[in-house]
Design a protein around this nucleic acid. Sequence first.
DNA 1: GATGTATGTTGTACATCGTACAGAGTTGTC
DNA 2: GACAACTCTGTACGATGTACAACATACATC
Lengths: 228, 228
Amino acid sequence: MVDTAIGLADREGLAAVTMRAVSRALGVVPMTLYTYVPGKAEMLDLMLDAVYIRTPRADTTGARWRTRLTAVADENRALFSAHPWAAEISTLRPPLGPGLMAKYEHELSALDGLGLSDVEMDDCLTYLLSFVQANAREAHQAAAVATAGDDAQWWARVGPLLAQVLDERRYPLASRVGTAAGEAHGSAHDPDHAYRFGLARVLDGLASLIERAEPGSPGRQLSADGTG
Amino acid sequence: MVDTAIGLADREGLAAVTMRAVSRALGVVPMTLYTYVPGKAEMLDLMLDAVYIRTPRADTTGARWRTRLTAVADENRALFSAHPWAAEISTLRPPLGPGLMAKYEHELSALDGLGLSDVEMDDCLTYLLSFVQANAREAHQAAAVATAGDDAQWWARVGPLLAQVLDERRYPLASRVGTAAGEAHGSAHDPDHAYRFGLARVLDGLASLIERAEPGSPGRQLSADGTG
DNA sequence: GATGTATGTTGTACATCGTACAGAGTTGTC
DNA sequence: GACAACTCTGTACGATGTACAACATACATC
């Protein structure tokens, strides 16, 4: 049942994952699903944990920390690329299943031995994953928009309206920078570029914390937060 | 109509914003709304642009760039704090209204004169705003979860299950770090802490780009992306 | 003043959703 | 063979977004 739902979500998007659709794919009446699951939310949790379990995880022991964290980010990006719906499901009060635990353990190991405190390790990982998820969400939305309305067609429709609002006198910076960014990326938003740019920023930001700590030390357990 | 919808969303959440609820608050039948708006999506766009317009924006001309960008981040955080639903609305193909334009112009000005190219300015702003929005979404979800299920009660229910899955032998890092983080924040996730920590990382990450450029220069227009 | 047209409003109706509830099979154990 | 536990089914309810046709009112034109 979870596999069926995942397949459905991969092919037709999260909105297509209805109890009726899943049950139909299983050749069963909708209410049957409620024998195995209390409600739809729990089914989504199970879907998420299932894809977590199957994520391939590269062993980067011994590599530089930037390489290791890049691998973690890329793994998550690949996951969201294969299952875009995963980025849309609520992550707070996460599905504490075996998949999430294995994922958490593996990703923490990329931050181990860098001289960070336990809390800092969690902070850094949360920060990194939050960036990847936000980017994945943007990418997914950008793709959905692109397929929906031909993009060029949308720009043609919105262009005049934009010119009207985008008074160059009142908004000189916005018009100049907006135009430059749009032309550089060939569209309103380029998630691939945003990922490369953002990941570089994330790593640089973490560097100011990590490279202040001594590698190999047991960690500065007393650091309350990493704000300096 | 937009004001009514905003009030409804502020008080009862985005899920409570139904065409029927808005129309009822206006003392009118649901279909009347469709005279002014083609569909619900457009109404949400108008709501977003309306709160953008009303956002107070501090003039930080002359201050250090970290101060200016912190102000931008805090303004957005305040907006999402006052209108949590704003963080949940699709932002791709954004509502190109006067509110968004004014916001964009103002926020770009905080990045002006730092020697960044136009594209880099957009990249940096996008990166910063994406962080704030992701954090706001987490905070909103955390709050919703807290009110829903007493938190302590939830931990009591999930604790045993967690201990079972969280085999310390198999997942030593996860159990140690997870426990430390949970105890430090008093719960599973602390969005306030994540904001302070994350903003510091964001600024450090941007510093590696900004402080490489010469302040006051017209910008390195040829830099394709900021990945170094 | 009468009339045609735009504009705002209403009621009814439909398809879709999650799921509550009561009952009908099927299976395994004593 | 009888009972209990599970699994499965059909029907039904209240929500949602919105299509469609009919109605009211206001204003421009003759």
